[in-house]
Design a protein around this nucleic acid. Structure first.
Lengths: 235, 235
DNA sequence: CATCCGGCAATTGGATCCAATACTAAAGAA
DNA sequence: TTCTTTAGTATTGGATCCAATTGCCGGATG
């Protein structure tokens, strides 16, 4: 083990992060047994932080208890994924509605406009590449985060945080960006354009205090993630 | 430490349960520092399961990180509580709507009718006592659980499970039942009667596949919990 | 040949140990 | 008197250790 210089993150949190990565990246396949010792050896830490990480991931639902002994990587069905997406729509829709009801601050409005402007640039590109993809994920994530936090409802925010830990349900869920062929990129750009168009409508509804409208727009917007999933699955 | 005979629950889970009890029961006051050693001594276990329990409770939101060092009992504001109740309404409303859309099975309908019948008995009592309270809490919990699980949406179910860990947000949240004076009991009976009346409408809407109606009924129904909270607070 | 029993190995869970870090309090200087 | 520095202490977090349970494999027996 390396000498411990002032570490920012607790070791167990690093392990949680790393394991999430491994699971979502498919390196730990669904259904596969997850034992403490192999993981601890693989990551070069002792079993203690691994054990703690496993309980955290189990709470998040990424792992499930395998009988009395240890965990397995949770196998998510297609229904699980669409369910999670639906829930995200419900929660983000509610967040947007609540935000309109309490009122949109001027700072928030401006921050949203910035997202729109930056999204516009990406959406209108002639050539859509990797870098644009990364940029879009960032802008999109910021946009959603702004709205969710504008609800100022902690229970809502944490419910969404939990939901986002499930695979593919997150607004920022990326396609496995390993080998994005030209065709995939084009399709993806198309999804981005649609998402951006919806973002514009959402901001418009938000700022004109159309609570019911923004709620249903947001719910519908979540369903775009399903397009992402099928796009990914079909490769 | 007691000799370990075949224990059902892992020690860390027992600690989680016990700590939740202590926190919700107010024995660990909001804002109070929670250190590992005092807890482990109090419960007669080593620090290891306590540490794990603390991370679990922190994830649930009952504890919050105190700077770099340890945790404190999270202080919930009145707004936090109404927020959590609102979120519960949103989620349970969605669950009920989804359940109507997918269709109510005959078994489910019957199980709901049983809840209604048992609730009717309690609601119509001339004299409402402790035992009725306990009974109502059980019936009410069963009713809500049936509906939520009828949605068959895991993401929704787990979002609600998280929400229910927050104080007072749960459908089964009881008033601190220590010394329920006669007046409190009467007021409480009134709340129960209203809740029961709403249950009946909810079942009616569910069974006649009125999705939108059942959703808004359920949302409104959640707000009854606020009455409970104010009732409790005013004592 | 199938089944049941016993022992062995793998693995988990808790306790203890140790190092490192953050808080505290006391003492000294401005 | 107050601010700063420093030494001591409390407490956390990770590693290691140990006990106990489980699952498995092989052999014995009906």
């Amino acid at each position: 083990m390396v000498k411990r210089e002032p570490v920012e993150l607790k070791l167990r949190e690093q392990v949680v992060l790393k394991l999430r990565e491994l699971i979502l990246g498919g390196e730990l396949a669904a259904g596969q047994r997850v034992a403490e010792i192999p993981i601890s050896e693989r990551l070069g830490v002792s079993r203690t932080p691994v054990r703690q990480a496993l309980t955290v991931l189990a709470q998040e639902g990424l792992l499930s208890a395998a009988g009395k002994r240890g965990y397995v990587v949770h196998a998510f069905s297609a229904k699980d994924i669409t369910d999670a997406i639906e829930v995200r729509g419900i929660l983000e829709g509610a967040a947007a509605r609540i935000a309109t009801e309490t009122g949109i601050s001027e700072e928030l409005r401006q921050a949203l406009e910035v997202c729109i402007a930056e999204g516009e640039v990406i959406a209108m590109k002639d050539h859509y590449g990797m870098a644009d993809d990364v940029r879009w994920v960032e802008v999109n994530g910021r946009f959603h985060k702004l709205i969710v936090e504008a609800s100022a409802n902690i229970a809502l925010i944490s419910a969404l945080a939990l939901n986002d830990k499930l695979p593919f349900a997150s607004a920022t869920a990326v396609l496995g960006g390993d080998t994005p062929s030209r065709i995939i990129a084009r399709k993806h750009h198309e999804v981005v354009r649609r998402a951006h168009a919806e973002h514009k409508k959402i901001v418009e509804a938000l700022c004109s205090r159309q609570g019911a409208r923004v709620e249903s727009l947001m719910q519908e917007h979540a369903r775009l993630a399903e397009a992402n999933v099928t796009l990914f699955r079909s490769t």
